[in-house]
Amino acid sequence: MLLTKKHQNTVDSYIRIGPDDSLPAEGALLVTLAVWQDHWERLVRRQELIGVQLTSDEHPEIISDDIDHLDLIALEFPTFRDGRAYSYARLIRERYGFTGELRAVGDVLLEQLHYMERVGFNSFEINSSDPETDFEIASNDFTVWYQASGDQRRIATMLRLGEKDRG
């Protein structure tokens, strides 16, 4: 099940392409890093949506120069315990300036969605019988956060200043 930032179920329009697959002439593609590097010129010239999926061993700095060509970056969580992609997501958003779709794939658990949203993910592949409801609950657990992390939520220090202004 794929959820987008509007918290809607979405049909995944991307075709996944691994190293052994041939590149179709048409259609949105989500390719591995190896495919992206091997077929970079061809992929950039296609007038279709293009995304790259990185494993948790692949630091996104490798594609930081390619950000403008990409519509989607998918980051893998091989297990929910592997938290590297939280850092990758912040770098992709805050340092490399990516504004497209940032998708969490792999072992993506409902209880982690609020962290993922905060670091910049805006779509999620998730197993759930009722993902929209679950998402609505999980991403609204908190109204106060202490850390600025690139999303637009107002953090406690800002809220406190606001309080002072009102007072």
Binding site: D82, G83, Y86, Y115, M116, Y146, S149, A156
Partner: peptide, 14 residues
Amino acid sequence: RQYSVLHPEFSYLP
């Protein structure tokens, strides 16, 4: 303490 509580990036450290 406040900085580390529910840090979205550092809640699944090694």
